[in-house]
């Protein structure tokens, strides 16, 4: 199956068309955020970058400083569920339309994302070298004081994927299929 190309900013109808099991790839701007950036974003709404219709990548990149600027060395996804307590609040506040991460989010959060019109896209954890290859450019880095992994990295990616639509806006959730064994 050939992945559908997504180019942010994304509209609500674009996102509502996606179904679990679909494959997508992203070309354009994505922004990394994890524990500390999430916490700061919901406590102090002044985001240094516009996220309306945007894509947030749960990732703490390994980056190195070179004479010509920062370079992403390895940048796979991190565990999304760590941010579950404030996941919906963050998405509502920022207007993000897609989250990229690994491991999925809790059942309740998945329902909240569906109502907010935000999909969850999965890329395999541990594939940092491969993901870094899709980063064409670092457009900026904000909140550096949080530490390198926790900062907001604005990345321009090219054909980042294939990503699996793991939770869609109808509330279908691939991760919960395993429940039939419990």
């Amino acid at each position: 199956m050939k992945p559908t190309r997504l180019t942010p900013p994304l509209s609500e109808p674009d996102i509502r068309k996606l179904r679990t099991g679909d494959l997508v790839s992203i070309t354009g701007k994505i922004v990394t955020a994890r524990d500390k950036a999430y916490t700061r974003a919901i406590s102090d709404a002044k985001l240094p970058v516009k996220l309306q219709g945007g894509i947030v990548y749960h990732c703490g990149p390994l980056a190195k400083r070179t004479p010509s600027g920062w370079k992403v060395v390895s940048a796979g996804p991190t565990t999304s569920a760590r941010m579950d307590q404030i996941q919906a609040k963050f998405v509502k506040l920022t207007g993000v339309r897609a989250l990229i991460g690994k491991g999925g989010v809790g059942e309740k959060v998945a329902g909240q994302l569906a109502r907010l019109g935000c999909v969850y896209l999965a890329f395999p954890g541990g594939t940092g070298a491969l993901a870094a290859k899709s980063v064409a450019k670092i457009e900026g880095v904000f909140w550096r004081d949080l530490g390198i992994p926790e900062a907001l990295w604005v990345l321009r990616v090219r054909d980042f994927g294939p990503l699996v639509v793991a939770i869609d806006t109808r509330g279908d959730n691939i991760y919960l299929d395993q429940k039939r064994w419990n």
């Binding site: 099991g21 494959l23 990732c59 703490g60 990149p61 390994l62 060395v73 390895s74 940048a75 796979g76 991190t78 890329f123 395999p124 954890g125 541990g126 594939t127 940092g128 070298a129 491969l130 993901a131 870094a132 290859k133 992994p149 294939p162 699996v164 691939i174």
Partner: peptide, 27 residues
């Protein structure tokens, strides 16, 4: 989907070795 995840993992191993960079950003 399971197969795709494994294929991406194996592809990642090749990229990491070739580029001499960590397999995972969580080192």
């Amino acid at each position: 989907i399971a197969k795709l995840q494994l294929e991406l993992m194996l592809k990642n191993l090749k990229v990491a070795k070739k580029m001499d960079v960590p397999i995972c950003q969580d080192t």
